[in-house]
Amino acid sequence: MATSARRPDAGRSSGPPPAELRLDAEVYSEAAIERARRAFDGLATIAVRRSGRYHLVRFSKVSPDAAARLPDEFGNYALSCLLVHP
């Protein structure tokens, strides 16, 4: 199951700690992930890399008001992109 987890590097910067989201590449297309990345660009620095069958999405410099929900909202957006832009 995909996960969103706080990385244990809190305190290194003044903002919230980076978080990571793991999405199954056999479900989520690269195009959907990229659309979501562009849509969320203003809320965080978002890095996407491939690790085996997963897209790893790493969020850093997250705006404080978006920190708690950002990975989950990103996941929802990417899922909607699968249907709206198949």
Binding site: M1, A2, D24, Y28, D72, L79, L83
Partner: peptide, 17 residues
């Protein structure tokens, strides 16, 4: 996917094969 889409407003939805 279509069923999952219908829950996006109420839940955070994630899928995995």
């Amino acid at each position: 996917l279509a069923a999952a889409y219908r829950f996006l407003e109420r839940c955070y939805v994630q899928l995995e094969r």
